[in-house]
């Protein structure tokens, strides 16, 4: 327990806990509910994720395997007109083939105002959620610091098919063990920054990145060359209505 300099918090702690115990003294124990059974996995996790992430105005670019990631990322940057993009130090170098007019800047502790001058950032992710089109970053390899994916105006995020889970409860379960080991920060991203604060009208782009590109890769990150699974590369869909 913690006690601040005045010892005030320690006294408050004891009293709050005592009030709680007094309030519940006559209450019978309430057992925790058994966990809900996992829902049957929808057969089309990848397609569902693609649809849902596009519903919230993220642009989806397909890649048939990890070998195509560099091309897909370059296409996303090219569409935005290039510029300087932050990347985490641990991002696979094979993903980064800068098209003309584009430069990658490795983030080794860039300050907020440095980040504000960049065009965007490129990362991988920890997992993604099909039901909501959500991407989760957990600061692991290829994902970088939180500030890096927040301050620049454009985020390009690479999601592999094998990283997609069905829904929020499954995502939480998949992240729980890592969360129990030590301090950690997760960012759950569902589409670009938005607000509905004015007459409940949804307006995209307030303080976070105003544009979100998702590079959706068939298979998993370890099997470089997802063509082995017999999937044909798909052309990138037309860009979203933004």
């Amino acid at each position: 327990m913690s006690v601040d300099a005045k010892g005030r918090s320690g006294k408050a702690r004891d009293e709050v806990l005592a009030r709680i115990r007094a309030a519940l003294s006559a209450a019978a124990p309430v057992p925790p509910p058994p966990p809900l059974p996992p829902p049957p996995a929808p057969p089309d996790l990848l397609e569902r994720f693609a649809r849902r992430v596009a519903d919230y105005r993220a642009r989806v670019t397909r890649a048939a395997g990890e070998v195509e990631v560099a091309r897909a990322i370059a296409a996303c940057l090219g569409r935005e007109g290039g510029g300087r993009y932050a990347v985490p130090p641990s991002l696979p170098s094979s993903w980064l083939k800068a098209p003309a007019g584009t430069e990658f800047v490795v983030d080794r502790g860039l300050g907020p105002s440095d980040l504000a001058r960049l065009a965007g950032s490129v990362t991988g992710c920890a997992l993604a959620v099909a039901e909501t089109g959500t991407i989760v970053l957990d600061g692991g390899p290829g994902q970088g610091r939180r500030a890096m994916t927040l301050v620049p105006d454009h985020l390009v995020c690479v999601v592999f098919e094998r990283q997609i889970v069905a829904d929020m409860p499954q995502a939480a379960a998949a992240l729980a063990d890592a969360m129990r080991t030590g301090p950690r920060a997760l960012t759950w991203i569902s589409g670009p920054s938005a607000t509905s604060d004015i007459e409940l009208n949804r307006v995209e782009g307030v303080h976070g990145p105003r544009r979100l590109d998702v590079v959706l890769v068939a298979g998993g990150p370890e099997d470089a060359g997802g063509r082995g699974e017999g999937r044909a590369p798909q052309p990138p869909p037309p860009s979203g209505p933004d």
Binding site: Y56, P183, R184, A185, W188, S190, G208
Partner: peptide
């Protein structure tokens, strides 16, 4: 919305 745009979940000091 199915999910709000951003959710931050952190523990302690990273």
């Amino acid at each position: 919305e199915r999910m709000n745009p951003y959710t931050t979940v952190f523990s302690g000091v990273v």
